[in-house]
């Protein structure tokens, strides 16, 4: 029974991800999901190199590499429900007796793996183009930090995804969320430079702590404080996931009552 559920979960994850390729051909996927994010990373690293006259731009490579996960966690996961609506299958999905939350988590699963691969591609780009050194870096801990970062960002993505049940055009929401993370996560300038109110927002967003932790790991610093930050990031992910779940229920009820599931 349990084995069947797990099998169904993975089969659905894989099918949903493959369906993405049904719509986008592989060439488009490479351009949009790999080349464009790498260009974004190169742009911000070059900008930092010029502005700070820095030879070592490791912090910017790390921060912007972690931000690459938003291509999946915000846009990929955020598109799940909206995509169903566009393809006309949303009402079937909502009417199905399956647990919706598990369905959406299942559809997000491959995006989490893809997001981690993107972060690694970003780090490799940093190594190849900007000479970022990984000598002496605790790679397992860095990997764990990436996993937690992607999990927290996915929780945020699920919250955005739930809005797809009610909002007509998710592009605005998804792009604004990704741009806010780019600005407020501390990837390109210290969070302390922001006005107080924005600093507070920064620390309730995912990735801010993960970027701070990753920079410390890259500098060979690893204290108990970093474990505390990791736990906080994990907690933020759980909070977003929970709010996302509640929003999903709420939005589904609203959409059922207003009969607006298929309305554009």
């Amino acid at each position: 029974m349990l084995f069947d559920i797990i099998k169904r979960f993975f089969r659905q994850s894989l099918l949903s991800f493959k369906a993405l390729f049904g719509e986008l051909d592989f060439k488009v996927y490479v351009f949009v999901q790999i080349i464009d994010p790498i260009l974004q990373l190169i742009f911000f690293c070059l900008l930092a190199k010029y502005v700070y006259k820095a030879d070592n731009i490791t912090p910017w490579v790390i921060g912007n590499s972690l931000l690459l996960c938003t291509k999946n966690t915000i846009f990929g996961i955020g598109f799940v429900l909206w995509g169903e609506r566009i393809f006309g299958t949303l009402k079937l999905l909502v009417a199905a007796p399956a647990n919706k939350f598990l369905v959406f988590v299942g559809r997000s699963f491959m995006h989490i793996i893809d997001a981690m691969i993107k972060v690694i591609i970003g780090l490799v780009t940093g190594y190849l183009l900007f000479g970022v050194s990984f000598a002496g870096v605790n790679l397992p801990i860095l990997g764990l930090n990436i996993l937690i970062a992607v999990f927290a960002a996915s929780g945020f993505g699920l919250l955005i995804c739930s809005m797809g049940l009610r909002i007509r055009d998710m592009n605005l929401i998804m792009n604004t969320a990704a741009t806010l993370l780019l600005a407020l996560s501390g990837a390109n300038f210290p969070v302390e430079k922001l006005p107080n109110i924005l600093q507070k927002i920064s620390y309730i967003l995912p990735l801010t702590r993960s970027i701070e932790i990753a920079n410390s790991i890259m500098h060979g610093v690893f204290t108990s404080n970093l474990y505390r930050l990791m736990l906080q990031e994990l907690f933020i992910g759980v909070i977003y996931l929970s709010i996302g779940y509640l929003m999903l229920q709420y939005m589904e009820n609203k959409a059922r009552k207003a009969a607006s599931l298929d309305i554009f």
Partner: peptide, 25 residues
């Protein structure tokens, strides 16, 4: 909405990022 994002939200957030990066340099 995407065009509204491109001409209103994106420039504001992008300006915030670049201002913060250039500030004090």
């Amino acid at each position: 909405p995407m065009f509204q994002y491109s001409i209103i939200i994106d420039p504001i957030v992008f300006a915030l990022i670049t201002y913060m990066m250039f500030k004090d340099t």
